[in-house]
Nucleic acid binder design. Sequence first.
DNA 1: ATCGAACTTAGT
DNA 2: ACTAAGTTCGAT
Length: 297
Amino acid sequence: MAERIFGHIPNVFEGDVFENRIALSHSKVHRPTQAGISGSQKEGADSIVLSGGYEDDQDLGDVIVYTGHGGRDPITKKQVTHQFLSDKNLALAINCQNGLPVRVIRGANHKSKFSPEFGYRYEGLYKVVKYWRKTGRSGFNVWLFRLEKITVDQALTYQVSEDSPIYSKTTRTLTAQQRLNRDYSLTLKIKEIYNFHCQVCNTKIFTNAGFYAEAAHIKPLGEPHNGPDTLDNILCLCPNHHVMLDFGGFTIDDDYSLIGLEGKLYVKPEHRINSEFIRYHREHFTFNLPHASQPSS
DNA sequence: ATCGAACTTAGT
DNA sequence: ACTAAGTTCGAT
């Protein structure tokens, strides 16, 4: 099975039109030949198609309210049972909780002023900002997903700093896409190692899309820190302790004792942390080393 | 490996 | 409008 690609497909640009679903599939922009959502509940959704047929859809251009799949009679196409937050719907929820972009394609059968005259047109990247359940026009439950277009400026942040202006747009798109996929696989890996438990407080957060945790870089990515995007620089944290780490609310000693918090960072044997990175954090993100950063209680 | 679901498509 | 053929993916 081919690897799922998040973000732009190299050599495919916004506005590109494909004759039919087979051509769209072969382009890798949206691989399924019929299904509206491409994705898995484990990895998330990489692309969706708007092609009419779901009566609760709303298309405002840069904002789309997209209906999840399921519950339709295969013959009449009418909603005949409830939809559930599972399968492809769960995939879109995963995008929302992890900030993954989804490619959007509008088909000619999708009746809105934004749909193409014919064929299927690639409309660029959107983020899933919210999802919820409601009683649809049919009277059955449907899941809805609010999508907001990722602007060009935002998309540029996917690109790596070593990218030079002399690189072609295609090269930069490729680099950005590869980076996105690599980042995401590391994110999945660190959460898998700790089974979504925070390494500081052991909290495991439960949501309607399963468990939630954050991958936190010890030495930050990007200029001027340029920490590496590797497992030995990443922790699995709850949102609170992620924020505290990023803003120096606590730091970590060489023996993993916490400074500024009680206790010790839990580190699994198979997870090697580079002590250079926690030293960097101690030296750059606390206001008074080594033990004066405790908040008063 | 197999199977079912899917915002298809062409043909009648 | 209806139907059957057909493809691909994702889960079992």
